[in-house]
Amino acid sequence: MSKRIDVKDLNVYYSKFLAVEDVNIEIEAKSVTAFIGPSGCGKSTFLRTLNRMHEVIPGGRVEGEVLLDGDNLYEPGVDPVTVRSQIGMVFQRPNPFPTMSIKDNVLAGVKLNGKKISRSDADSLVEKSLRGANLWNEVKDRLDKPGSGLSGGQQQRLCIARTIAVKPQVILMDEPCSALDPISTLAIEDLINELKSEFTVVIVTHNMQQAARVSDKTAFFNIAGTGKPGKLIEYADTATIFSNPSVKATEDYVSGRFG
């Protein structure tokens, strides 16, 4: 259960400000795609358009098409809620719900939507999701304790468990390791490699080594200057981007000669 995403001529706006211009990209099912680029180039903004989270921000709107297995997310009549239940998202800062236990956090996507779920189904879903996020062994004895009592890395894996519990087709990750220490980062990177077998994963990262380690394909975004829109400069296999990029700007960025 995973779907591909095709983006066609996408422009992303904040009110009148064009933040990301003319993106065309094809993201394969069951692959890991990394977005890299300098701060403010629109990687996160673009990522948020892939599950219609961009429009949550006042003034946020897009032009163009995002196709999930051929279905346009932005067609009139498409409910953003349906889109988001198919395309999950993990945020930069771990954000477990503070009022809920670890178990309830994992079940949040089910319970908050008011779906009835039997106790045994709930328990097996919790275990499966937490195992999927490599967190089960650490928390199995304290499922009823609050999620905010976990460490940062554990909280982030809890957020991933919460995301996979709703069985999405695609998982978007917005710099999921930027607030974590190297050990937790390693745990999450291992997890991404495992998630690939079931989900399509798109990850924004500032860490080029991380992009090189986890992704199959890499997209490099850049910005011409302050106030200019961000653009997709180059999109290719990760190995190509890091060893033999076709654009000079990409080479400068990945080799650290940027600026």
Binding site: V56, V81, R84, S85, F91, N95, A108, G109, R162
Partner: peptide, 12 residues
């Protein structure tokens, strides 16, 4: 972030 986390789970 909590609102966004809920929206991202497909919650109305």
């Amino acid at each position: 972030e909590l609102r966004e986390a809920a929206y991202a789970l497909g919650v109305r």
